[in-house]
């Protein structure tokens, strides 16, 4: 087939696809497009995590065999890991393994990576979930409150204080917040535990550490959204009708603000998962973040690959879920995505 023929064929295929999708309703078209982009992102994620083991310095076979290993043992491990095969074959095997949820075995602890994911993800989810709870319960009321108090240029001092505080908080990296909180509240004041997951209070400091930045960022967004909504004509109309303030806030302001907050909330959760990587280490929280840092220091490639892929898939799925949720809440999104 010549290149022009191939181009014509491709155009014909695209045309067929376009015709097919045009016959579908907006929802199936939207879902089909989301599924296609999900597929592409997942394929890229697979390729990147596969290349991780090849781009990282050091020989995985040497790592697995150990420093005392003979050349024969290292070669044996290379074969066992399949690293003696051509790259495309290795990639196919990797994809097959992932399809079977077989991510290999840790070089260090000899545990299957799937088992590590099963054991540790609930802990990470618990931490990120608690963080999200804090983010939503603190930032939304805070943002609305400050938005309401500072509307139309009122309370300049409060606005400056709020902006300064949230700017500083959103610029603080998690490791710094975590170390600071651990030192003050656990080591110095001894009010809360540093780690020890057996204590129910052990989650307080890590959860605050992961949520401080998103609380600050989301509170600013909610405040802006509040100011925006409060400036709308329908709010003025509601006021002119002398509707009680709580009715204006709960019936007219809150739903609009919540839409924005929930949209960002999904993305915040994905960000919180990333934030747990460092925070789990500071508080000895036995989640995936702690394990992946440990794996990086020990060049435990299968564990790094497995956890990075797992985190990646979760983030991609969350983003897709947020897109769908947005479309459900605000059908204009369907039109915009066309």
């Amino acid at each position: 087939m010549t290149s022009s023929q191939a181009l014509q064929r491709h155009s014909a295929d695209s045309g067929t696809l376009a015709r097919l999708t045009s016959r579908l309703g907006p929802w199936p078209r939207f879902l089909l497009k989301r599924a296609a982009s999900l597929f592409v992102v997942l394929a890229m994620l697979l390729a990147l995590t596969f290349l991780l083991i090849h781009l990282a310095p050091g020989d995985p076979a040497v790592r697995k065999a150990g420093i005392d290993a003979s050349a024969e043992q290292i070669e044996f491990e290379r074969k066992a890991l399949g690293l003696d095969q051509p790259l495309p074959i290795q990639f196919i095997r990797y994809v097959q393994g992932v399809a079977r949820l077989d991510f290999g075995t840790s070089f260090i602890t000899k545990q299957s990576v799937t088992e590590i994911l099963q054991q540790r993800f609930p802990r990470t989810f618990q931490l990120a979930g608690t963080g999200l709870l804090i983010v939503m319960t603190v930032s939304v009321p805070l943002g609305i409150l400050v938005g309401a108090l500072t509307r139309e240029g009122r309370n300049r001092r409060l606005e400056v204080a709020f902006m300064s505080l949230t700017s500083t908080s959103s610029a603080l990296p998690e490791f710094l917040t975590a170390t600071f909180l651990a030192f003050i509240f656990a080591v110095t004041l001894n009010w809360l535990p540093v780690g020890t997951t057996q204590k129910s209070t052990a989650i307080i400091l890590p959860a605050i550490s992961v949520s401080l930045r998103p609380v600050a960022s989301l509170a600013r967004v909610v405040r802006l959204e509040t100011l925006n909504v409060l400036a709308q004509d329908y709010i003025r109309t509601a006021r002119s009708k002398r509707l009680p303030t709580y009715v204006i806030f709960t019936r007219h302001l809150l739903p609009n603000v919540l839409t924005a907050a929930l949209t960002i909330g999904g993305l915040v959760f994905a960000g919180l998962l990333g934030g747990t990587v460092i925070v789990e280490n500071v508080f000895a929280w036995p989640g995936l973040g702690q394990r992946v840092v440990d794996a990086v220091f020990n060049l435990d490639y299968p564990v790094i690959q497995g956890i990075v892929l797992y985190f990646g898939v979760i983030v991609v799925l969350i983003n897709t879920a947020v897109d769908i949720l947005l479309a459900l809440v605000d059908p204009r999104t369907l039109v915009l995505s066309e």
């Binding site: 651990a182 656990a186 780690g195 508080f283 000895a284």
Partner: peptide, 18 residues
Amino acid sequence: YQVVDNETTAANLFLAGE
């Protein structure tokens, strides 16, 4: 036996009596 990879965290745990 408490697994604590991070030495700073281990020091904090020790100083906090954990």
